[in-house]
Design a binder for these strands. Structure first.
Lengths: 347, 347
DNA sequence: TGTTAGCACTCAATGGCAACAAGTGCTAAA
DNA sequence: TTTAGCACTTGTTGCCATTGAGTGCTAACA
C-alpha cells in the first residue's frame, strides 16, 4: 500500500526525529538520508503520508513528525531485529549471574540494569505466585515480646514480618494459634489462604485469643507484601530527561501512580506472548500520551508468567530497545527456571 | 542593638515574604502590617537594616527580602513558641498510637506524618543502635535450599535476610557455622561484631566451609541493612512545590543524595540537644542554599539518640514548624521509651 | 505522468523598543 | 526625626519587525 519511496521516507523521518528530537523538513531529509529525489518530490510524498495519517505537523509550516499510526506501522512492519551491543549483553548476563538470595532480587536487578542501559524507566514484574501453595509458617521467637512470622511457598517465595506481642498474651495462646495455622492453612494455595483469612480464620482466632485483631492485621500485611513485592520500578527520575516537556504536575502524578503499584499491572495489560509495543494514546491513559511502553511477558515453567517492560518517549529507537527487552525476556526465563529447579530438585 | 521599630519591620518583612513569596516594599509593608510610620521612614529603616546585613534586595530597585543573617536573628531572638494546631497534635498522637511491630515503623511513620502535615520533606533517623549487643542469631531453614538468617539485638532491633544455599554445602557444614557464630559473636556489641566480620571471622569460616565467600557477603548485607534501615525520608517530591526555582538537575542531585543515605547523617550533623535551625548556606552544601533544616535530636533512655528533621524553603514559617518538630521530638522520645520498656520488662 | 524548480506564504523564534509598575535613594521642608 | 516629593532604576509586558525553516502550489520539464 505504501511505495518503496514512501517507506524509506517514513523510516528516515522516524530515525531523524529520534536523533534530533525536532520536526523533520524536506531539506534535512535530503541531506541526512540517501533518498534520491528533490525536496519538492519529498514534500509531495510527505503530503500523501500525512493524508494517510502516518505523519503530522506541529504547526502549519513546520516539518513533519511521525504520528502514532506512523510509529505503529513502523513497529509492525519496518522494524528489523537489531543486534544487541555485545557489551550490553555481557553486562546483562553478568548482572543476572551473581549469586542471588531470592527470586525477587533477580527481578529487581533486571529492572535496574535495563533502566541503566537505556536511561529510560524499567518495570519488572515477578512471575505470578498466586497458584503457589503455602508450604509452611514459621513462628520464630526473638525475645520475650517479639516474634517473627515467616511464610514460605512451594515456589520458593518467602515473606517475613516482625510482630510485637501484646502484653496480655501468654505462650499457650500463641501455641494454639501456631497449631491452628498449620492445620488450617498449610498446603492450601495462596488464594485460598487469603480467602480464609478474610472469612473463617478470624473467627477461629477469636475463639482462642483475646486480642485477635492485631494478629489478623499482621497477616493481611504479610500477604499485601507478598503481592506488592513482585513489582519493581527503576529509573523513574529518567523521565525528567527523556520527556522534554513534561510539566511538574504530570511528573508527580505519574511518579505517585508508580508508587501505588496497584494500577501498574493494569497498564502492563494483556500479557500476550512475545513482545508488545504500545505507543502514546494506545496506553489508554492521558498521563502517558508522550510515552511508549515495550513489554515482554516471560514464561517460567511451574512458576508462572512475569513481565519485563520499558517505558520511554514515543520517539525512542524502537528496534534497539525491542531487542534489548527481548534479551531480558529470554534471560529471565532461563535464570528463574534454573533457580526453581535448584529448589525443587532437593525435595 | 535593633530598635523596636526595626524589629517589627524585620518581623513583618519575614512574615510577608513567607506569605506572598515576593520581595516586600515599603508600601506593602504599611498596608499589611500595623507599623505607624510613613513609607519614607520605613525606607530609611530598611536601608539601616540592609547595612547591618539583615535584609537584601534582589535587584537595585526591588523590595527587600530577609538575608540569612536576618533569618538567623529572627529565629534566635524573635520566634516565640507557636501553639500547635490541636488537630495536628491529635493526628500525630493518633498515628504514633497504632500498634506497631518495630521501632523502625514508628520512626518511619513519624516522617510520613511530619511531611504530610507540613507539605515539606521530613527526615527521620532512628535511635542509634551501635552500642547495642547481639543477643542472638537464628538460622531458620525454609526448605532444602533456602535459609533465613535473623539477627536480634538487646534493644529489640531485628534484621533478616534470605539466603539460597550453594548446592555443595551439606547440613554439617552449616551446623558448624551456626555454632561458630553463636560462640564467637553473640554477646558482643554490634561494632565488635562488625569488626570481627571484617577480620578474623572470614578466616574461621573458611576453615569449615568450602564456599565461604557468599556466606560472608550475606552478613555484610545484613549489617548494611541494619545501618540504613534507620533512615527514612518522606515527601521528597514536595521539593518541587515549595522550592519555586529549582532546576531539574539540582532536584535530581538532591533526590539521589537522599537515596544514598550515606551523606545524610552528616547533614543532620552535630545532634546538639534541643532544636537546631540551619538556614540556607549554613547547611554547608551548595545544593541546599535555598533550603532550611529544622532538626531535633531526641533521647531515648537506653536506646540512644535519634533525630527528626524537617527540610523546607528558607522562607518557611519557622515558629509554626519549630513547634511542630518539637512535638515529634517529645512524642518519639516517649513512645520509644515505652516500647523499649515493654521489651525489657519481660526479660 | 511523475518529477522538479521556483515562488508566495505561514508560523515560531528572536530582538529591540516603548510603556508601565513597583520600588528605591535622596533632598528639603515640617 | 519624620515625611512628602521627585528623579531614577529595574523587571515585566506587549508590540512590531525581522529572520529562518519549512510548506503548498503552480508551471515547466523529461
Amino acid at each position: 500500500m505504501l511505495t518503496e519511496r514512501q517507506i524509506s521516507i517514513l523510516k528516515s523521518i522516524i530515525h531523524l526525529y529520534t536523533k534530533y528530537g525536532q520536526p523533520v523538513g524536506s531539506k534535512t531529509l535530503i541531506q541526512e538520508s540517501k533518498i534520491a529525489a528533490s525536496s519538492a518530490t519529498i514534500r509531495n510524498e510527505m503530503v500523501h503520508l500525512e493524508e494517510m495519517g502516518f505523519l503530522k505537523k506541529t504547526h502549519s509550516s513546520s516539518g513533519r513528525i511521525p504520528s502514532i499510526t506512523g510509529y505503529r506501522y513502523y513497529v509492525d512492519y519496518l522494524v528489523h531485529p537489531h543486534k544487541v551491543d555485545p557489551e550490553d549483553l555481557a553486562s546483562i548476563k553478568q548482572a543476572l549471574e551473581n549469586p542471588f538470595k531470592q527470586i525477587d532480587e533477580i527481578v529487581m536487578t533486571s529492572a535496574e540494569v535495563l533502566s541503566h542501559l537505556t536511561s529510560y524507566t524499567a518495570i519488572s514484574l515477578g512471575p505470578e505466585i498466586k497458584d503457589s501453595k503455602l508450604t509452611g509458617f514459621r513462628f520464630v521467637p526473638l525475645n520475650e515480646r517479639q516474634l517473627m512470622v515467616i511464610l514460605v511457598t512451594d515456589k520458593g517465595h518467602v515473606e517475613s514480618q516482625n510482630f510485637t506481642l501484646p502484653q496480655q498474651m501468654n505462650p499457650y495462646e500463641l501455641e494454639k494459634v501456631v497449631r491452628l495455622f498449620n492445620e488450617e492453612l498449610v498446603g492450601k494455595s495462596l488464594i485460598e489462604v487469603f480467602r480464609s483469612l478474610k472469612t473463617d480464620v478470624p473467627e477461629l482466632i477469636r475463639q482462642h485469643i483475646r486480642t485477635a485483631e492485631n494478629m489478623i492485621g499482621l497477616f493481611d500485611d504479610l500477604f499485601l507484601k507478598a503481592a506488592t513485592d513482585r513489582i519493581h520500578i527503576e529509573g523513574r527520575m529518567n523521565m525528567l530527561d527523556y520527556s522534554n516537556d513534561l510539566n511538574i504536575e504530570q511528573f508527580k502524578s505519574i511518579y505517585s501512580l508508580m508508587d501505588g503499584k496497584h494500577d501498574l499491572p493494569m497498564l502492563l495489560g494483556s500479557k500476550q506472548e512475545g513482545i508488545t509495543v504500545q505507543i502514546g494514546k494506545e496506553l489508554d491513559n492521558e498521563l502517558f500520551e508522550q510515552f511508549s511502553l515495550i513489554s515482554a511477558a516471560y514464561e517460567v515453567e511451574n512458576l508462572g508468567t512475569g513481565v519485563i517492560a520499558l517505558l520511554g518517549p514515543t520517539s525512542m529507537p524502537y528496534s534497539k530497545m525491542i531487542s534489548l527487552v527481548g534479551v531480558f525476556q529470554k534471560e529471565l526465563s532461563k535464570k528463574l527456571e534454573a533457580y526453581y529447579h535448584d529448589i525443587d530438585d532437593n525435595k
